Simulated scan of single mutants.
Amino acid sequence: MSKLLYSATTSVDGFIAGPGGDMSWLVPYLGPDPAIDDLVGEIGALLVGNRTFRGDDPHKGTPAEGEACGGGWSGPQFVLTHHPPAEPVPGVTFVGDLHAAVAAATTAAGGKYVNVLGADVARQCLEAGLLDEIFVCIAPVLLGDGVRLFDRPGGTPLALERLVATQGPVATDIRLRVVR
């Protein structure tokens, strides 16, 4: 059965995007990373938040612009949104309900991971008890402001179990399991 895995690169101070969703900070940290390369091979489908889907692209101005994982992955993508675009987007399904989106992505993943992209959709999956794992690349930078890796004001602590921690070429990679 497919598992839901939230993956993101975060600054040391816990931001995955700068102010206004700016992703340009990520460019120096896009280098090859064996842990990320291995993870990409384990992904069967993407569950993407609307802001992430429509947001800034760290690959802007390169041939990888607009491509999942910078062009390193292809497959079915499901975008959680209440405002789908007027024109269809090839390879992308827009879904307005979290549980329907998770069910569709899980089926499409065919036993591989559903990679959750976007802090808000990851939070929704976590709160619904659907998130299984978290893969975080910690980049050696302080952003000071922006979109947090997780933002749960008033939330209670949630236990995580470390599965793997490795030092990549430009970031520290940590894979965690959500303890239920």
Rank of each mutant, 00 (worst) to 15 (best):
A45Y: 08
A45P: 07
A45W: 07
L46M: 14
L46S: 14
L47E: 13
L47A: 12
L47G: 11
V48T: 15
V48D: 03
G49H: 06
G49E: 08
N50G: 10
N50P: 01
N50E: 13
N50Y: 07
R51W: 06
R51M: 12
R51Q: 13
R51T: 14
R51I: 05
T52P: 06
T52R: 09
F53W: 15
F53I: 15
F53G: 08
R54N: 09
R54G: 06
R54H: 09
R54F: 08
G55Y: 01
D56P: 05
D56N: 14
D56Q: 12
D57R: 09
D57I: 09
D57M: 09
P58E: 11
H59F: 15
H59M: 07
H59G: 03
H59E: 08
H59C: 07
H59T: 04
H59W: 15
K60Y: 10
K60I: 11
K60L: 13
K60M: 11
G61Y: 12
G61V: 12
T62M: 10
T62F: 10
T62K: 09
P63S: 06
P63G: 06
P63Y: 06
P63F: 07
P63C: 08
A64S: 15
A64M: 10
A64I: 03
A64F: 07
E65R: 03
E65G: 05
E65Y: 05
G66K: 00
G66I: 00
E67W: 02
E67Q: 10
E67K: 11
E67M: 09
E67V: 04
A68E: 00
A68V: 04
A68R: 01
A68S: 08
A68F: 02
A68L: 03
A68D: 01
A68K: 03
C69A: 15
C69Y: 15
G70F: 02
G70Q: 00
G70Y: 03
G70K: 03
G71R: 10
G71N: 12
G71T: 11
G72S: 14
G72H: 14
G72T: 07
G72E: 13
G72F: 07
G72A: 15
G72W: 07
G72P: 02
W73C: 08
S74G: 04
S74T: 05
S74M: 02
S74Y: 02
S74I: 00
G75R: 05
G75M: 06
G75K: 05
P76Q: 10
P76G: 08
P76M: 12
P76E: 14
P76A: 11
Q77P: 02
Q77G: 13
Q77C: 12
Q77W: 03
Q77K: 09
F78Q: 02
F78I: 00
F78W: 03
F78K: 02
V79C: 00
V79D: 00
V79S: 01
V79P: 01
V79K: 00
L80D: 13
L80G: 12
L80K: 11
L80Y: 09
L80Q: 12
T81K: 12
T81C: 12
T81E: 05
T81Y: 08
H82E: 03
H82N: 05
H82M: 04
H82W: 04
H82D: 04
